[in-house]
Design a protein around this nucleic acid. Sequence first.
DNA 1: TATTGTTATACTCTATAACTATA
DNA 2: TATAGTTATAGAGTATAACAATA
Lengths: 165, 165
Amino acid sequence: MIGSMETKTRSTTGAGAAASLEAHLGYWLRLVSNEVSGAFQRALEERHHISVAEWVALNQLATGADLTPARLATAMGMTRGAVSKVLDKLESKKLIVRTTSSADSRVQELSLTAHARRTLPSLTEIANGNDEHFFAVLSPEESSTLSELLRKLATAHHIARIPVA
Amino acid sequence: MIGSMETKTRSTTGAGAAASLEAHLGYWLRLVSNEVSGAFQRALEERHHISVAEWVALNQLATGADLTPARLATAMGMTRGAVSKVLDKLESKKLIVRTTSSADSRVQELSLTAHARRTLPSLTEIANGNDEHFFAVLSPEESSTLSELLRKLATAHHIARIPVA
DNA sequence: TATTGTTATACTCTATAACTATA
DNA sequence: TATAGTTATAGAGTATAACAATA
C-alpha cells in the first residue's frame, strides 16, 4: 500500500547509498508524466491525427499573439527547422496559413484557419478530459497541492520552454 | 508571476472552457518532468556515454533478478527488438555479457560485468545528485507530499512500466 | 553582412515484421 | 508449431548546417 511505503525522499548523497529506481522522485515524476502525456498524445493522434507539437503550436497561435516561425520556435524551445516542419504539417491539414509580411518579405505571418478555430474546442476537450481522467483520483485539495508544488519547482528552476515531447 | 497565477485545477469539462496550456496539471507535470529527466539524460550521456534506457537496463540487472532479453523487454515496456539494440550497446561497452542458457539454447542469460559493477555507484550518484538538485527547493515535507501524490496516481492507474524516455 | 525561413542530411529511438535457431 | 532472440525496414522527431531571398 502507498501509505506504508518508504517515503523518504531526501537522500544523504552518501556514496554507497543503495538507490533503487523507485527511490527517486524523478522516477515517479517521469512515470506519471509519461502516462498522462502518452494518453493525451494517443487521443490527439487517434481523434484528430495531430501531434502534441502541432497541438502546442495551434494553442500558441490561438492566444492571439502575432507569431512568426522564429518566434514560435523560441516559444516552443525548438529550432526554426523543426518548427518549419510542424508548420508544413499544419498547413497541409488546412489548420494554419502562412502569409508573407508586407513590412518585411522575409517574414511569414502565421494565422489559424476557420477550420482550426472550429477544431480547437474539441482539442481542448481532449486535454480537459485527459486531465480530468488522470487527476480525478485526487481530492480537490490534493490537486491544488500538486499544482502548487509543480509550479514551485518550475519557478525555482526557471523552466520556461513549453514541453512538446 | 507564477505565484499569482490561477491555480484552479479541476475543470468543469464545460464545452466552452477557455483552457490555456497552463490550466492543465498534465502540462506542469510534463514541464517539470522533462526538465528533470532531460538534465539526468544529459548528465548520463556526458559523464558515461550511456542512455537512460541503458541505465534502466543496468539497474534491472543489478537487482539480482535472473533476466533474459524477453523478461527485460517486459519489465521495461519495450519490444524484444528494441531491447536487443540496447543490449548490443551495453555489450559493446563491456557492461553486460550474454550467455547462452545451458537448459535452453534459445535463451540468453544476461549478467553485469565487473566493470559495470564498478561503474554503477557513479551512475547512482548522478541519479541521486539530479534528484537532490531539483527537489532541494522543496522542504522535506513538501517532497514527501509530492512523492505520495505521484505514488497515489501511479497506483490508481496501475502504471507499471518503467519509464525509459 | 545579418536575418528569416526552408531544406538537406543525419542521428536517435522505437515499432513491425521477417528471419534463424532452437524446442 | 511455438518461442527466444536478432535483424531489416520504416517512421517520428529533432538537430546541424547549408541555402535562397531579403534586409
